[in-house]
Amino acid sequence: MPPIIRFNQVSVTAHEKTLLANISFRLFAGEKAVLCGKSGSGKSSVLRTLLGLHPLKSGTVYFQENPLTPESVQSIRSCTAYIGQEPILGAENVREALLLPFQFKIHRGHQPTEAQLIEVLQRLQLPENILDQDSNRISGGEKQRIALARGMLLGKKLYLLDEVTSALDADSKQVVFDVFSDPQLTVLSVAHDPEWLERCDIIFELEAGRLTEVRRHGNT
């Protein structure tokens, strides 16, 4: 089976600074990977590069073996959920935030029902009444779970998680771990959390934009 993500000797610079230097790796469907390294080592740049947010200096990024190009970028983005430390919900209340992507042409007509919304919230241990809450008045951890719920409603299979576990308490962390134990879901994450690292199949160590070590363990 071909890899879902493949970086082939990818280098990225921004404002004359090297973000990524000659990085190559592969990630297969269902794998859970984590990028580790000091701040500024290029962890988030890997995620952003995959989403077409940094122009490549050299090398090629493949998504399901199709090269990342201006033509393919929208389909990559629509298959991928990116969740950052403080996700932006982009709407006044939580319900609108969850339904926001369904206004876009690519998802139009697939709007979830109220029952589906509630089911997803329950899986993430969020109360039903959060739907009508103001997006600005919920906590960082709740925002992350709402962003995750949005990815689940969109049926996304690839999750790019940037420091997600840092804002979560122990219970919510367990909930998130359970969601990602689904073998259908592929995860490429940036994290420091030892528990999270333990659950990942692959650990990529980065240093100054270079991939210095790849560790695999088979405990999932």
Binding site: L53, Q74, S78, I88, G90, F104, K105, I106, R150
Partner: peptide
């Protein structure tokens, strides 16, 4: 800019 990027990630075209 982060909100704009979020919209793109949720499948929006540039115009959307």
């Amino acid at each position: 800019e982060n909100e704009y990027t979020t919209f793109l990630m949720l499948g929006a075209t540039r115009w959307e």
